[in-house]
C-alpha cells in the first residue's frame, strides 16, 4: 500500500524565549519535527514494514526555515522513503484549513496513496483539526485517535480510545487517520539510517500563492508566571538532603 504521513516542522519550544515586551521569540530556536508527529511517522513506518511492497512518503508545509537539512534528514531517517516539503514564509503559522489546502496540493504531487496518517496534534496549536480538514479537502473518510492501526484485506483496521470507551473500526481506503501518541514509540535512527536519509529524494518547493486564511492571529504573548521561591538543594552536598527534608516538613 502507499502511505503518506503529514508532519509539521516547528521551532523547538525549549529554545523559545520571552522578549522584553512579553512576546515570544523563536528566532534562535532550532527547527524540529513536532513531537507527536514523530509517533505518527513511526506508526506509518510500522504500517509500511508490515505490508510488503508499501511506500511511505512524508508531506509537510511550513515557513522557509522548515527547509532545514538536519530536520529533513531526521524525517527521512525514520523509515520514510521520500519527502514533499512546501517551505515558504507565506506558509508560516497557517490555520488548519489553509494548511490542509496546501497539504492537499502536496498529496496530489506525491502520486498514488491509500492512507494519510497525521499526528495527534501539532506542538504549537494542538488543534487536532488539520487531519479532518485534509479529509474534507480530499473528500475521504477520517478517523481520529487511532491507538492501533493495521491493513487487512484491503481495509484499515483501527482501534481507538474515546473518553470512556474504546472502538474497533474498519475503514476502506483511501482515508485520513490521526494517531494517538501511544500508538508507537518513535525509533532512534542509527548512523546508517541518517546517511541513507541524506540520499533520499527531497522535493522542496515554494508556495504557489499565499493561501487564504480564516483565522486572524490577534496576539501571541507569554503567560504570566507564578512567582516561585526556587529554593533548591543538592543531595550531593552533605547536608542538602536533610535541609530539603526539613523544608518539605515545613510545607506539609
Amino acid at each position: 500500500m502507499n502511505i503518506l504521513v503529514a508532519c509539521k516542522i516547528v521551532p523547538d519550544d525549549q529554545d523559545i524565549t520571552v522578549a522584553s515586551d512579553g512576546s515570544l521569540d523563536s528566532s534562535r530556536a532550532h527547527e524540529i519535527v513536532s513531537q507527536y508527529d514523530l509517533n505518527a511517522i513511526e506508526a506509518a513506518a510500522q504500517l509500511k514494514e508490515a505490508n510488503e511492497g508499501s511506500t511511505l512518503k512524508a508531506i509537510s508545509v511550513g515557513p522557509k526555515k522548515a527547509d532545514d537539512s538536519k530536520t529533513k534528514k531526521d524525517i527521512l531517517s525514520r523509515g520514510v522513503d521520500e519527502l514533499y516539503l512546501m517551505a515558504d514564509d507565506s506558509l508560516a503559522d497557517l490555520d488548519s484549513r489553509a494548511t490542509a489546502t496546501e497539504l492537499a496540493k502536496l498529496v496530489n504531487k506525491a502520486g498514488d496513496w491509500d492512507v494519510i496518517i497525521v499526528g495527534d496534534g501539532s506542538a504549537d496549536d494542538y488543534a487536532k483539526q488539520t487531519g479532518v480538514q485534509l479529509a474534507c479537502a480530499l473528500d475521504v473518510p477520517y478517523v481520529a485517535g487511532a491507538t492501533n492501526l493495521s491493513f487487512q484485506e484491503g481495509n484499515l483496521e483501527i482501534q481507538r480510545n474515546l473518553e470512556s470507551e474504546s472502538e474497533d473500526i474498519e475503514l476502506a481506503v483511501p482515508a485520513v487517520v490521526s494517531v494517538s501518541p501511544e500508538i508507537a514509540e518513535p525509533r532512534i535512527a542509527g548512523m546508517r539510517d541518517i546517511l541513507k536519509a541524506g540520499k533520499k529524494p527531497q522535493n522542496v518547493e515554494a508556495a504557489e500563492e499565499k493561501p487564504e486564511e480564516s483565522i486572524e492571529t490577534v496576539s501571541i504573548k507569554a503567560p504570566k508566571q507564578a512567582d516561585r521561591k526556587q529554593e533548591v538543594f543538592d543531595a550531593s552536598d552533605g547536608e542538602g538532603l536533610d535541609k530539603f527534608v526539613s523544608a518539605v516538613k515545613e510545607v506539609l
Partner: peptide
C-alpha cells in the same frame, strides 16, 4: 473538545469555509 466532536467540528468548519479555533 471530545475526540468525536472535535472531528465533527472540523467537518462543519470545512463545510462553512472556515477553520475551527482550537483550545
Amino acid at each position: 473538545p471530545t475526540v468525536r466532536v472535535t472531528s465533527l467540528a472540523g467537518r462543519l468548519a470545512a463545510h462553512a469555509n472556515t477553520a475551527a479555533v482550537p483550545g
